[in-house]
């Protein structure tokens, strides 16, 4: 964890007297915010659009659900402006399950984030899947008690988001495509840039920070520790147990599955199999067994045939 202090406000009124000792409690600290991401490691976070899907996800073993109005595949198909989900929808999902509930706000739309925080959402995804609200600036995530996850395609982007207060990074991949190729590209880019930093001499780090467009103190932290200062998850295009295993073997610490579950032929068994595959990602006999008879995966898109303007991953700066 980075040795930076959160500037999020801590509650002054949360003083609890225990016997004679006055105990001061602090909420919204970086440790508490990154801590929840640590607890989600080795798990699967599933996109859901209603209470019924949320219950299917929880029963299949999801560690958290992402509450949405439309899964990315439908956002892509239907077009128009994609916004934060209706709070009514999110509340319905929060009431349906006991696991953490995440929700998405538009890039730079801090008011949507404030609303999600006020509702008690457990993690906010400042997401390229929704239509960006600001083409220059992301949300100042240090101002929130609720932790944020952000997408990244390379190390510089990951460290810029962490510099703004993101407590979890995920690959962007290409959401709603059912195609793993972009998530693989992004995970490999991040991992290989991290490895490169660890062998650079100290005097090269400032120039490297300039080239990456990333804060120098974070670049130095990564060079010394050989990993991101916050958990690093995979997202965007995961559709099968083998996809989950692939991303875990490439260094992801957990996986997000968006359209891949509820756009498949038989969601519940597929969800369960992806959960097992994420835990036992190096047990290939087990993977062979649990990949059997899951029905059709979501159809998917060939990204090399897509128009640049239709890509979601290019949103964010």
């Amino acid at each position: 964890m980075a040795s930076r202090k959160s500037t999020a406000k801590t509650t002054g009124n949360a003083k609890v007297a225990e016997k004679k000792t006055e105990l001061r409690t602090e909420t919204g600290t970086l440790r508490v915010k990154v801590g929840l991401a640590e607890m989600l490691k080795g798990g699967v976070i599933m996109d859901v659009t209603n209470a019924e899907q949320a219950r299917i996800a929880e029963d299949a073993g999801a560690v958290a659900v992402m509450a949405l109005e439309r899964v990315p595949a439908d956002i892509r198909k239907e077009g128009g402006v994609a916004r934060m989900a209706d709070p009514e929808k999110i509340m319905e999902i929060m009431d349906a399950v006991t696991i953490p509930v995440m929700a998405k706000c538009r890039i730079g739309h801090f008011a949507e984030a404030q609303i999600l925080e006020a509702m008690g959402v457990d993690y906010v995804d400042e997401s390229e899947v929704l239509t960006p609200a600001d083409e220059h600036f992301h949300v100042d995530k240090f101002q929130f008690k609720v932790p944020f996850v952000c997408g990244a395609r390379d190390l510089g982007e990951a460290l810029r988001r962490i510099g703004e207060g993101a407590c979890m990074i995920r690959t962007k991949g290409e959401a709603g495509s059912g195609n793993i190729v972009e998530a693989v590209r992004h995970m490999r880019a991040v991992q290989s840039a991290i490895k490169r930093l660890t062998v650079l001499p100290e005097e090269e780090l400032m120039t490297e920070a300039k080239a990456l467009g990333a804060p120098f103190d974070l670049v130095r932290w990564v060079a010394r520790n050989g990993k991101l200062p916050v958990p690093n998850f995979a997202a965007g295009g995961i559709a099968t147990p083998a996809d989950a295993s692939l991303m875990m073997q490439l260094g992801a610490e957990a996986v997000f599955v968006g359209s891949g579950i509820f756009k498949s032929e038989d969601p519940a068994p597929r969800a369960k199999a992806i959960v097992e595959a994420t835990t036992h990602y190096k047990n290939f006999k087990k993977l062979a067994q649990l990949s059997r008879g899951l029905g059709d995966a979501m159809a998917g898109l060939d990204i090399s045939k897509m128009d640049e303007k239709d890509l979601l991953q290019t949103r964010g700066w």
Partner: peptide, 17 residues
């Protein structure tokens, strides 16, 4: 009791003997 102190925004730290 699970999640007895509330949701994530209520997660906290404190010094305990």
């Amino acid at each position: 009791e699970r999640n007895a102190y509330g949701r994530q925004v209520d997660s906290f730290e404190a010094d305990l003997p």
